[in-house]
Design a protein around this nucleic acid. Structure first.
Lengths: 137, 137
DNA sequence: GCAGAAATAATAATAGTTACTAGTTTATTG
DNA sequence: CAATAAACTAGTAACTATTATTATTTCTGC
């Protein structure tokens, strides 16, 4: 239903594979620029535009996720399975939430009570991470 | 805890009052630009910068909420009480979710299981609104 | 009324992202 | 293998939302 049609036949792009590999290799949720810098170590003359374009393609392919947690720039997550995130209001880092399953029943509940067709939801928690919590403000 | 100190003594700004009034008067969740256009009908020579600055002040005052639902631009909500939102993937409109209470217990659960200090969370549902659902894609 | 600070309009600057362009690589098909 | 078409690319320009700056105006308490 929400699955997009495959508009273009995709080739096996070496750059795209490396971008995916870099993103999969980190547990952080990096920005496009961070990914660009990392990938540049493997493909020195890659351009930032290529990184953005391939991140967008990978997202369309359903291999990665794009996050918007209240910052001006997007962050990317190499794990396309729906899960929740935590944003530290002090250091700005984004973490995966562990130990809480995605509540799929709530989508139906929201659908029924509001007359919409709900496909999925996102949840982001905000606060202080362990490290930042220790440092007394 | 998360409450910011009042940095500057605020004056009763006419523009700010009208911006708040405009935002409170709609159930939509408008962008800064939409608000600017509306306010311009009452204060023709107001500048967009003033709108942005006052939205930011109103947010600091806790009178409004800023939303980031996966778009490149922010949307604003005249209701500062935490509540959930629904984004229509077709028309892009943002709605308040009715009939679902904010789950405050989950913040504690996330805190305990991950060792963070969680203050609040946000939840956004995605799908098709009633109108867009009727129109067969 | 006056001093000092807040608020303002207009404008410039910034940052993240996207679009464009001309050239390169790759898969495919005859 | 040669020809062709289309995906892909680096480099760069353009765009857009937002923020900062600046010179000026408006409040507000004394």
């Amino acid at each position: 239903m929400q699955e997009k049609e495959q508009k273009r036949p995709l080739r096996n792009s070496k750059q795209r594979a490396i971008i995916l590999e870099v993103l999969k290799s980190t547990k952080t949720h990096p920005t496009a620029d961070w990914i660009y810098e990392k990938v540049r170590k493997k493909i020195p003359n890659i351009s930032l535009g290529t990184v953005y374009r391939n991140l967008s393609v990978l997202k369309e392919m359903g291999k990665i996720m794009e996050l918007n947690c209240g910052e001006k720039c997007s962050r990317y997550d190499g794990n396309p399975e729906n899960h929740y995130h935590f944003v530290c209001l002090k250091c700005g880092r984004v973490f995966d939430v562990e130990g809480i399953d995605v509540n799929r029943k709530i989508d139906e509940e929201v659908s029924e009570k509001n007359g919409w067709e709900v496909f999925y939801h996102r949840m982001e928690f905000y606060g202080l991470c362990g490290e930042c919590s220790k440092k007394n403000d």
